[in-house]
Design a protein around this nucleic acid. Sequence first.
RNA 1: GGAGAAAUGGCAGAGUGGUCGAAUGCACUGGUCUUGAAAACCAGCGAGGGUCACACCUCCGGGGGUUCGAAUCCCUCUUUCUCCGCCA
Length: 423
Amino acid sequence: MLQVAYIRDNKEDIVKRLAKRNIDATQMINEVISLDEARRSLQTKLDSTKAESNSLSKEIGNLFKSGEAQKANLLKEKTTQLKETTKTLEQELNYKADELKALLYKIPNVPNTIVPAGNTDEDNEEVFREGDIPVLYDGALPHWELAKKYDIIDFELGNKITGAGFPVYKGKGAKLQRALITYFLDKNTEAGYTEFQLPHLVNEASGFGTGQLPDKEGQMYHVTADNLYLIPTAEVPGTNIFRDTLLAESDLPIGITGYTPCFRREAGSYGAHVRGLNRLHQFDKVEILRVEHPNNSYNALDGMVEHVKDILKELKLPYRILRLCGGDLGFTSALTYDFEVFSTAQDRWLEISSVSNFETFQANRLKLRFKNSEGKNELCHTLNGSSLALPRVLAGILENYQTEDGIKIPEVLIPYTGFDMIS
RNA sequence: GGAGAAAUGGCAGAGUGGUCGAAUGCACUGGUCUUGAAAACCAGCGAGGGUCACACCUCCGGGGGUUCGAAUCCCUCUUUCUCCGCCA
Protein backbone atom coordinates (compact mmCIF):
# COMPACT_ATOMS: atom_id res chain seq x y z
CA MET A 1 0.00 0.00 0.00
CA LEU A 2 1.33 3.40 -0.97
CA GLN A 3 1.47 6.19 1.58
CA VAL A 4 -0.97 9.02 1.08
CA ALA A 5 1.64 11.65 1.84
CA TYR A 6 3.88 10.16 -0.82
CA ILE A 7 1.04 10.21 -3.33
CA ARG A 8 0.27 13.82 -2.50
CA ASP A 9 3.86 14.91 -3.03
CA ASN A 10 4.67 12.85 -6.13
CA LYS A 11 1.46 12.75 -8.08
CA GLU A 12 2.86 13.19 -11.61
CA ASP A 13 5.82 10.93 -11.08
CA ILE A 14 3.62 8.15 -9.72
CA VAL A 15 1.22 8.32 -12.64
CA LYS A 16 4.12 8.29 -15.05
CA ARG A 17 5.76 5.28 -13.46
CA LEU A 18 2.53 3.34 -13.03
CA ALA A 19 2.01 3.76 -16.77
CA LYS A 20 4.71 1.12 -17.12
CA ARG A 21 2.19 -1.33 -15.75
CA ASN A 22 -0.11 -0.24 -18.52
CA ILE A 23 -2.51 1.42 -16.19
CA ASP A 24 -3.59 4.99 -16.26
CA ALA A 25 -3.69 5.85 -12.60
CA THR A 26 -4.56 9.51 -13.03
CA GLN A 27 -8.11 9.11 -11.88
CA MET A 28 -7.30 6.87 -8.94
CA ILE A 29 -4.56 9.17 -7.77
CA ASN A 30 -6.79 12.22 -8.00
CA GLU A 31 -9.48 10.38 -6.11
CA VAL A 32 -7.05 9.43 -3.37
CA ILE A 33 -6.06 13.03 -2.97
CA SER A 34 -9.60 14.32 -2.86
CA LEU A 35 -10.75 11.56 -0.51
CA ASP A 36 -7.85 12.37 1.74
CA GLU A 37 -8.74 16.05 1.72
CA ALA A 38 -12.32 15.23 2.58
CA ARG A 39 -11.15 12.92 5.32
CA ARG A 40 -8.89 15.54 6.79
CA SER A 41 -11.50 18.24 6.84
CA LEU A 42 -13.94 15.91 8.58
CA GLN A 43 -11.24 14.95 11.03
CA THR A 44 -10.59 18.60 11.85
CA LYS A 45 -14.29 19.23 12.42
CA LEU A 46 -14.58 16.17 14.60
CA ASP A 47 -11.49 17.07 16.57
CA SER A 48 -12.69 20.53 17.43
CA THR A 49 -16.11 19.22 18.43
CA LYS A 50 -14.45 16.73 20.72
CA ALA A 51 -12.13 19.39 22.09
CA GLU A 52 -15.16 21.44 23.03
CA SER A 53 -16.91 18.63 24.83
CA ASN A 54 -13.70 17.63 26.56
CA SER A 55 -13.27 21.05 28.03
CA LEU A 56 -16.95 21.17 29.01
CA SER A 57 -16.55 17.87 30.82
CA LYS A 58 -13.69 19.26 32.79
CA GLU A 59 -15.73 22.30 33.69
CA ILE A 60 -18.63 20.13 34.79
CA GLY A 61 -16.33 18.13 37.00
CA ASN A 62 -15.05 21.28 38.63
CA LEU A 63 -18.54 22.67 39.12
CA PHE A 64 -19.70 19.50 40.83
CA LYS A 65 -16.70 19.64 43.09
CA SER A 66 -17.40 23.20 44.12
CA GLY A 67 -21.05 22.32 44.70
CA GLU A 68 -22.54 24.27 41.80
CA ALA A 69 -24.75 21.46 40.59
CA GLN A 70 -27.24 23.69 38.81
CA LYS A 71 -24.65 25.26 36.57
CA ALA A 72 -23.21 21.85 35.92
CA ASN A 73 -26.53 20.45 34.79
CA LEU A 74 -26.94 23.31 32.37
CA LEU A 75 -23.64 22.45 30.77
CA LYS A 76 -24.64 18.81 30.58
CA GLU A 77 -27.39 19.67 28.14
CA LYS A 78 -24.86 21.29 25.90
CA THR A 79 -22.70 18.20 25.80
CA THR A 80 -25.66 16.10 24.69
CA GLN A 81 -25.87 18.17 21.53
CA LEU A 82 -22.16 17.93 20.93
CA LYS A 83 -22.38 14.20 21.31
CA GLU A 84 -24.83 13.91 18.48
CA THR A 85 -22.65 16.02 16.24
CA THR A 86 -19.71 13.84 17.15
CA LYS A 87 -21.58 10.72 16.23
CA THR A 88 -22.59 11.87 12.77
CA LEU A 89 -19.14 13.26 12.05
CA GLU A 90 -17.59 10.01 13.16
CA GLN A 91 -19.79 8.06 10.81
CA GLU A 92 -18.95 10.29 7.88
CA LEU A 93 -15.28 10.11 8.74
CA ASN A 94 -15.26 6.33 8.95
CA TYR A 95 -17.02 6.11 5.64
CA LYS A 96 -14.46 8.34 3.94
CA ALA A 97 -11.55 6.60 5.59
CA ASP A 98 -12.83 3.20 4.46
CA GLU A 99 -13.33 4.46 0.94
CA LEU A 100 -9.80 5.81 0.90
CA LYS A 101 -8.36 2.59 2.23
CA ALA A 102 -10.24 0.47 -0.27
CA LEU A 103 -8.87 2.61 -3.06
CA LEU A 104 -5.33 2.49 -1.72
CA TYR A 105 -5.53 -1.29 -1.65
CA LYS A 106 -6.18 -1.21 -5.37
CA ILE A 107 -3.13 0.79 -6.39
CA PRO A 108 -0.09 -1.37 -7.14
CA ASN A 109 3.44 -0.51 -6.17
CA VAL A 110 5.27 2.08 -8.22
CA PRO A 111 7.84 0.41 -10.47
CA ASN A 112 11.46 1.35 -10.11
CA THR A 113 12.77 3.61 -12.88
CA ILE A 114 14.81 0.79 -14.42
CA VAL A 115 11.76 -1.43 -14.90
CA PRO A 116 11.27 -1.86 -18.65
CA ALA A 117 7.92 -0.89 -20.13
CA GLY A 118 5.93 -3.73 -21.61
CA ASN A 119 2.84 -5.88 -21.44
CA THR A 120 3.76 -9.53 -21.32
CA ASP A 121 6.59 -11.85 -20.41
CA GLU A 122 7.94 -11.27 -23.91
CA ASP A 123 8.89 -7.76 -22.88
CA ASN A 124 10.97 -8.90 -19.93
CA GLU A 125 14.58 -7.93 -20.27
CA GLU A 126 17.22 -10.62 -20.10
CA VAL A 127 20.10 -9.30 -18.01
CA PHE A 128 22.21 -12.40 -17.46
CA ARG A 129 22.70 -15.92 -18.76
CA GLU A 130 25.00 -18.68 -17.60
CA GLY A 131 25.58 -22.42 -17.91
CA ASP A 132 25.84 -24.72 -20.86
CA ILE A 133 22.75 -26.23 -22.34
CA PRO A 134 23.46 -29.96 -22.42
CA VAL A 135 23.23 -31.97 -25.58
CA LEU A 136 21.04 -34.94 -24.76
CA TYR A 137 20.89 -38.37 -26.22
CA ASP A 138 18.33 -39.23 -28.86
CA GLY A 139 14.96 -39.90 -27.28
CA ALA A 140 15.48 -37.72 -24.22
CA LEU A 141 12.24 -37.41 -22.26
CA PRO A 142 10.34 -34.67 -20.49
CA HIS A 143 10.31 -35.04 -16.71
CA TRP A 144 6.80 -36.47 -16.47
CA GLU A 145 7.90 -39.37 -18.62
CA LEU A 146 11.10 -39.76 -16.65
CA ALA A 147 9.13 -39.71 -13.41
CA LYS A 148 7.10 -42.63 -14.66
CA LYS A 149 10.02 -44.52 -16.14
CA TYR A 150 12.01 -44.47 -12.91
CA ASP A 151 8.94 -44.53 -10.64
CA ILE A 152 9.95 -41.47 -8.62
CA ILE A 153 6.90 -39.23 -8.93
CA ASP A 154 3.35 -40.52 -9.15
CA PHE A 155 0.84 -38.03 -10.49
CA GLU A 156 -2.04 -40.50 -10.76
CA LEU A 157 -1.68 -41.53 -7.16
CA GLY A 158 -1.93 -37.86 -6.21
CA ASN A 159 -5.12 -37.64 -8.26
CA LYS A 160 -6.55 -40.57 -6.34
CA ILE A 161 -5.65 -39.24 -2.92
CA THR A 162 -6.43 -35.58 -3.47
CA GLY A 163 -6.78 -34.38 -7.04
CA ALA A 164 -4.80 -32.93 -9.90
CA GLY A 165 -1.77 -30.93 -8.89
CA PHE A 166 -0.89 -32.93 -5.78
CA PRO A 167 1.87 -35.29 -6.87
CA VAL A 168 3.29 -38.08 -4.75
CA TYR A 169 7.08 -38.34 -4.60
CA LYS A 170 8.43 -41.81 -4.12
CA GLY A 171 11.70 -43.51 -3.22
CA LYS A 172 14.66 -41.70 -4.73
CA GLY A 173 12.32 -38.95 -5.94
CA ALA A 174 11.29 -38.21 -2.37
CA LYS A 175 14.87 -38.39 -1.19
CA LEU A 176 16.06 -36.06 -3.93
CA GLN A 177 13.35 -33.59 -2.98
CA ARG A 178 14.41 -33.71 0.66
CA ALA A 179 18.07 -33.37 -0.37
CA LEU A 180 17.28 -30.22 -2.33
CA ILE A 181 15.41 -28.66 0.58
CA THR A 182 18.25 -29.34 2.99
CA TYR A 183 20.85 -28.15 0.51
CA PHE A 184 18.98 -24.88 -0.10
CA LEU A 185 18.52 -24.25 3.60
CA ASP A 186 22.20 -24.92 4.22
CA LYS A 187 23.22 -22.51 1.48
CA ASN A 188 20.91 -19.85 2.88
CA THR A 189 22.01 -20.19 6.48
CA GLU A 190 25.65 -20.13 5.36
CA ALA A 191 24.88 -16.83 3.69
CA GLY A 192 23.65 -15.44 7.00
CA TYR A 193 19.93 -16.13 6.83
CA THR A 194 18.35 -17.43 10.02
CA GLU A 195 16.27 -20.55 9.54
CA PHE A 196 12.62 -20.46 10.60
CA GLN A 197 9.92 -23.08 10.64
CA LEU A 198 6.69 -21.26 10.05
CA PRO A 199 2.99 -22.07 10.30
CA HIS A 200 1.40 -23.32 7.11
CA LEU A 201 -1.92 -21.73 7.92
CA VAL A 202 -2.38 -18.05 8.57
CA ASN A 203 -5.17 -15.86 9.86
CA GLU A 204 -6.95 -13.07 8.06
CA ALA A 205 -4.78 -10.31 9.49
CA SER A 206 -1.69 -11.94 8.02
CA GLY A 207 -3.41 -12.26 4.65
CA PHE A 208 -4.02 -8.51 4.70
CA GLY A 209 -0.50 -7.83 5.88
CA THR A 210 1.10 -9.21 2.77
CA GLY A 211 -1.66 -8.24 0.36
CA GLN A 212 -3.31 -11.57 -0.50
CA LEU A 213 -6.42 -10.08 1.03
CA PRO A 214 -8.74 -8.41 0.33
CA ASP A 215 -8.62 -9.06 -3.40
CA LYS A 216 -6.86 -12.33 -4.01
CA GLU A 217 -8.56 -14.69 -1.60
CA GLY A 218 -9.56 -16.88 -4.53
CA GLN A 219 -5.95 -17.93 -4.95
CA MET A 220 -5.68 -19.35 -1.46
CA TYR A 221 -7.26 -22.40 0.10
CA HIS A 222 -9.57 -21.24 2.85
CA VAL A 223 -10.35 -23.26 5.95
CA THR A 224 -13.77 -21.80 6.59
CA ALA A 225 -14.46 -23.52 9.89
CA ASP A 226 -11.59 -21.62 11.52
CA ASN A 227 -11.24 -18.79 9.03
CA LEU A 228 -7.64 -19.65 8.25
CA TYR A 229 -5.83 -19.72 4.93
CA LEU A 230 -3.27 -22.19 3.64
CA ILE A 231 -0.16 -20.25 2.72
CA PRO A 232 0.56 -19.72 -0.97
CA THR A 233 4.19 -18.97 -0.06
CA ALA A 234 6.37 -18.65 3.03
CA GLU A 235 6.40 -14.95 2.30
CA VAL A 236 3.06 -14.68 4.06
CA PRO A 237 3.92 -16.08 7.51
CA GLY A 238 7.54 -14.93 7.12
CA THR A 239 6.75 -11.31 6.43
CA ASN A 240 4.01 -11.21 9.03
CA ILE A 241 6.60 -11.94 11.68
CA PHE A 242 7.23 -8.23 11.38
CA ARG A 243 3.67 -6.97 11.39
CA ASP A 244 3.25 -4.08 13.86
CA THR A 245 6.90 -3.97 14.72
CA LEU A 246 9.19 -1.13 15.63
CA LEU A 247 12.84 -2.06 15.19
CA ALA A 248 16.02 -0.34 16.24
CA GLU A 249 18.21 0.80 13.37
CA SER A 250 20.89 -1.57 14.67
CA ASP A 251 18.53 -4.54 14.17
CA LEU A 252 18.83 -4.08 10.40
CA PRO A 253 19.40 -5.88 8.17
CA ILE A 254 17.40 -8.99 9.03
CA GLY A 255 17.56 -12.07 6.85
CA ILE A 256 15.45 -15.16 7.38
CA THR A 257 14.90 -18.33 5.43
CA GLY A 258 12.35 -21.07 5.69
CA TYR A 259 11.09 -24.15 3.96
CA THR A 260 7.34 -24.54 3.60
CA PRO A 261 4.92 -26.29 1.34
CA CYS A 262 2.94 -23.79 -0.72
CA PHE A 263 -0.71 -24.15 -1.64
CA ARG A 264 -2.22 -22.43 -4.64
CA ARG A 265 -5.66 -22.88 -6.08
CA GLU A 266 -4.78 -21.17 -9.40
CA ALA A 267 -7.30 -21.10 -12.18
CA GLY A 268 -7.20 -24.52 -13.80
CA SER A 269 -5.47 -24.68 -17.12
CA TYR A 270 -4.29 -27.67 -19.07
CA GLY A 271 -1.76 -28.52 -21.73
CA ALA A 272 1.92 -29.08 -22.07
CA HIS A 273 2.87 -25.91 -20.24
CA VAL A 274 1.29 -27.01 -17.01
CA ARG A 275 2.04 -30.68 -17.31
CA GLY A 276 3.91 -32.65 -14.73
CA LEU A 277 5.67 -30.45 -12.22
CA ASN A 278 5.25 -27.27 -14.18
CA ARG A 279 2.27 -26.08 -12.20
CA LEU A 280 0.91 -27.58 -9.00
CA HIS A 281 -1.59 -26.91 -6.26
CA GLN A 282 0.87 -28.03 -3.64
CA PHE A 283 4.61 -27.62 -3.99
CA ASP A 284 7.64 -27.05 -1.83
CA LYS A 285 9.70 -23.93 -1.67
CA VAL A 286 12.57 -22.50 0.32
CA GLU A 287 12.23 -18.77 0.69
CA ILE A 288 14.61 -16.00 1.67
CA LEU A 289 13.33 -12.80 3.14
CA ARG A 290 15.02 -9.56 4.14
CA VAL A 291 14.13 -6.46 6.13
CA GLU A 292 16.42 -3.63 5.14
CA HIS A 293 17.27 -0.03 5.74
CA PRO A 294 15.80 1.97 2.82
CA ASN A 295 19.28 3.14 1.83
CA ASN A 296 20.47 -0.38 1.40
CA SER A 297 17.57 -2.28 -0.12
CA TYR A 298 18.77 -2.25 -3.72
CA ASN A 299 22.18 -3.37 -2.62
CA ALA A 300 20.49 -6.17 -0.78
CA LEU A 301 18.46 -7.07 -3.86
CA ASP A 302 21.67 -7.45 -5.85
CA GLY A 303 23.06 -9.58 -3.06
CA MET A 304 20.05 -11.88 -3.20
CA VAL A 305 20.42 -12.22 -6.95
CA GLU A 306 24.08 -13.16 -6.53
CA HIS A 307 23.12 -15.68 -3.89
CA VAL A 308 20.61 -17.45 -6.13
CA LYS A 309 23.09 -17.36 -9.00
CA ASP A 310 25.60 -19.11 -6.80
CA ILE A 311 23.18 -21.93 -6.07
CA LEU A 312 22.33 -22.48 -9.72
CA LYS A 313 25.98 -22.43 -10.61
CA GLU A 314 26.67 -25.13 -8.07
CA LEU A 315 23.81 -27.20 -9.42
CA LYS A 316 25.25 -26.65 -12.89
CA LEU A 317 21.93 -25.79 -14.41
CA PRO A 318 21.71 -23.47 -17.42
CA TYR A 319 19.73 -20.40 -16.41
CA ARG A 320 18.98 -16.82 -17.26
CA ILE A 321 17.87 -13.79 -15.29
CA LEU A 322 15.09 -11.51 -16.43
CA ARG A 323 14.21 -8.07 -15.25
CA LEU A 324 10.44 -8.11 -15.28
CA CYS A 325 8.64 -5.51 -17.35
CA GLY A 326 5.90 -3.35 -15.90
CA GLY A 327 3.12 -5.57 -17.21
CA ASP A 328 4.59 -8.70 -15.68
CA LEU A 329 5.59 -7.16 -12.37
CA GLY A 330 3.77 -8.37 -9.28
CA PHE A 331 1.28 -6.05 -7.60
CA THR A 332 3.44 -5.35 -4.56
CA SER A 333 6.86 -5.26 -6.21
CA ALA A 334 8.94 -2.28 -7.31
CA LEU A 335 11.56 -4.36 -9.06
CA THR A 336 11.70 -8.10 -9.71
CA TYR A 337 14.28 -10.44 -11.17
CA ASP A 338 13.05 -13.81 -12.35
CA PHE A 339 15.35 -16.78 -12.67
CA GLU A 340 14.60 -19.34 -15.32
CA VAL A 341 16.19 -22.71 -15.85
CA PHE A 342 16.37 -24.07 -19.35
CA SER A 343 14.71 -27.39 -19.67
CA THR A 344 16.32 -29.15 -22.58
CA ALA A 345 13.78 -31.90 -22.96
CA GLN A 346 10.88 -29.47 -22.96
CA ASP A 347 12.88 -26.94 -24.93
CA ARG A 348 11.66 -24.07 -22.80
CA TRP A 349 12.58 -21.86 -19.87
CA LEU A 350 11.05 -22.63 -16.48
CA GLU A 351 10.68 -19.99 -13.82
CA ILE A 352 12.30 -21.17 -10.61
CA SER A 353 12.85 -18.04 -8.59
CA SER A 354 11.56 -14.55 -8.31
CA VAL A 355 13.49 -12.01 -6.29
CA SER A 356 11.83 -8.70 -5.48
CA ASN A 357 12.21 -5.45 -3.65
CA PHE A 358 8.90 -4.17 -2.28
CA GLU A 359 10.45 -1.01 -0.86
CA THR A 360 7.93 0.34 1.69
CA PHE A 361 4.86 -1.10 -0.01
CA GLN A 362 4.50 -4.08 2.32
CA ALA A 363 6.01 -2.32 5.31
CA ASN A 364 3.35 0.36 5.15
CA ARG A 365 0.57 -2.16 5.41
CA LEU A 366 2.42 -4.17 8.01
CA LYS A 367 3.43 -1.13 10.05
CA LEU A 368 7.00 -2.34 10.00
CA ARG A 369 9.22 0.53 11.05
CA PHE A 370 12.57 1.29 12.57
CA LYS A 371 13.77 4.21 14.66
CA ASN A 372 16.22 6.08 12.46
CA SER A 373 19.29 8.02 13.52
CA GLU A 374 17.16 11.14 14.00
CA GLY A 375 14.90 9.28 16.38
CA LYS A 376 12.04 9.28 13.89
CA ASN A 377 10.10 6.19 12.95
CA GLU A 378 10.63 5.26 9.36
CA LEU A 379 9.23 2.41 7.24
CA CYS A 380 11.63 -0.42 6.48
CA HIS A 381 12.10 -1.94 3.06
CA THR A 382 11.20 -5.59 2.60
CA LEU A 383 12.51 -8.03 0.02
CA ASN A 384 12.04 -11.66 -0.71
CA GLY A 385 12.92 -14.35 -3.15
CA SER A 386 12.71 -18.04 -3.71
CA SER A 387 15.83 -19.96 -3.07
CA LEU A 388 14.43 -22.03 -4.54
CA ALA A 389 11.09 -23.41 -5.74
CA LEU A 390 11.42 -27.16 -5.79
CA PRO A 391 9.30 -28.68 -8.57
CA ARG A 392 10.82 -26.87 -11.50
CA VAL A 393 14.34 -27.24 -10.16
CA LEU A 394 13.58 -30.92 -9.91
CA ALA A 395 12.18 -30.91 -13.44
CA GLY A 396 15.29 -29.11 -14.65
CA ILE A 397 17.58 -31.62 -12.98
CA LEU A 398 15.67 -34.64 -14.24
CA GLU A 399 15.58 -33.35 -17.77
CA ASN A 400 19.07 -31.88 -18.05
CA TYR A 401 20.88 -34.63 -16.17
CA GLN A 402 19.27 -37.57 -17.93
CA THR A 403 21.42 -40.11 -19.72
CA GLU A 404 20.49 -43.31 -21.44
CA ASP A 405 21.44 -45.16 -18.27
CA GLY A 406 19.52 -43.03 -15.86
CA ILE A 407 19.50 -39.64 -14.20
CA LYS A 408 22.73 -38.38 -12.72
CA ILE A 409 22.61 -36.46 -9.46
CA PRO A 410 24.36 -33.06 -9.43
CA GLU A 411 27.60 -33.36 -7.54
CA VAL A 412 26.73 -30.92 -4.75
CA LEU A 413 23.65 -32.97 -3.93
CA ILE A 414 25.29 -36.36 -3.61
CA PRO A 415 26.26 -35.83 0.04
CA TYR A 416 22.58 -35.08 0.67
CA THR A 417 21.04 -37.89 -1.38
CA GLY A 418 23.54 -40.62 -0.62
CA PHE A 419 23.25 -41.85 -4.21
CA ASP A 420 24.61 -40.49 -7.47
CA MET A 421 22.22 -41.96 -9.98
CA ILE A 422 18.53 -42.67 -10.43
CA SER A 423 18.17 -45.66 -12.68
C1' G B 1 -13.59 -29.37 27.13
C1' G B 2 -14.26 -27.28 32.70
C1' A B 3 -12.58 -23.56 36.70
C1' G B 4 -9.81 -19.25 37.80
C1' A B 5 -6.34 -15.07 36.73
C1' A B 6 -4.48 -11.68 33.33
C1' A B 7 -3.57 -8.35 28.64
C1' U B 8 -0.87 -0.93 29.95
C1' G B 9 4.76 2.78 26.10
C1' G B 10 10.93 -0.67 22.73
C1' C B 11 10.93 -4.09 27.29
C1' A B 12 9.46 -4.81 32.45
C1' G B 13 5.79 -2.90 35.55
C1' A B 14 2.40 0.66 38.80
C1' G B 15 -2.22 2.69 38.22
C1' U B 16 -10.05 0.80 40.17
C1' G B 17 -14.42 7.12 37.64
C1' G B 18 -12.00 13.68 36.58
C1' U B 19 -5.80 17.15 37.45
C1' C B 20 -3.74 9.94 33.72
C1' G B 21 -1.05 9.72 27.68
C1' A B 22 -0.25 7.33 32.14
C1' A B 23 4.40 6.46 38.18
C1' U B 24 8.93 3.75 38.39
C1' G B 25 12.92 0.77 36.43
C1' C B 26 15.63 -0.93 32.12
C1' A B 27 16.94 0.33 27.18
C1' C B 28 17.93 4.54 24.12
C1' U B 29 19.70 9.92 23.05
C1' G B 30 22.36 14.38 24.68
C1' G B 31 25.39 16.55 28.53
C1' U B 32 28.82 16.79 33.10
C1' C B 33 32.99 14.07 35.00
C1' U B 34 37.28 10.98 32.67
C1' U B 35 43.42 10.48 28.76
C1' G B 36 39.42 7.02 27.02
C1' A B 37 35.68 3.76 28.63
C1' A B 38 32.67 2.13 32.69
C1' A B 39 30.21 3.98 36.94
C1' A B 40 27.81 8.19 38.94
C1' C B 41 25.01 12.57 38.18
C1' C B 42 21.78 16.02 35.07
C1' A B 43 18.36 16.40 30.99
C1' G B 44 15.39 14.26 27.14
C1' C B 45 12.62 10.09 25.52
C1' G B 46 5.39 6.16 23.40
C1' A B 47 2.47 5.89 18.72
C1' G B 48 -0.96 7.80 14.96
C1' G B 49 -3.74 12.00 12.95
C1' G B 50 -3.56 17.29 12.40
C1' U B 51 -0.71 22.15 11.82
C1' C B 52 4.15 26.28 8.34
C1' A B 53 4.79 25.63 13.56
C1' C B 54 1.76 25.44 17.82
C1' A B 55 -3.05 24.31 19.42
C1' C B 56 -6.01 20.28 19.23
C1' C B 57 -7.82 14.99 18.50
C1' U B 58 -7.20 9.60 19.02
C1' C B 59 -4.84 5.28 21.15
C1' C B 60 -3.91 1.39 27.91
C1' G B 61 -5.45 -6.59 23.56
C1' G B 62 -10.08 -6.07 19.50
C1' G B 63 -15.28 -4.57 19.21
C1' G B 64 -19.61 -2.58 21.67
C1' G B 65 -22.02 -0.16 26.03
C1' U B 66 -22.85 2.91 30.80
C1' U B 67 -21.37 8.16 32.14
C1' C B 68 -21.11 15.21 31.48
C1' G B 69 -16.35 12.40 31.97
C1' A B 70 -13.51 5.44 31.31
C1' A B 71 -6.89 2.46 31.38
C1' U B 72 -10.36 2.18 35.63
C1' C B 73 -17.47 0.02 35.56
C1' C B 74 -20.59 -3.49 32.20
C1' C B 75 -21.09 -6.88 27.75
C1' U B 76 -18.56 -9.59 23.99
C1' C B 77 -14.48 -11.59 21.24
C1' U B 78 -9.30 -12.90 20.96
C1' U B 79 -4.85 -14.22 23.26
C1' U B 80 -1.73 -15.68 27.46
C1' C B 81 -0.94 -18.00 32.26
C1' U B 82 -2.41 -21.53 36.41
C1' C B 83 -5.26 -25.87 37.86
C1' C B 84 -8.34 -30.10 36.17
C1' G B 85 -9.82 -33.36 32.10
C1' C B 86 -8.54 -35.48 27.32
C1' C B 87 -4.62 -36.63 23.97
C1' A B 88 0.10 -37.00 20.08
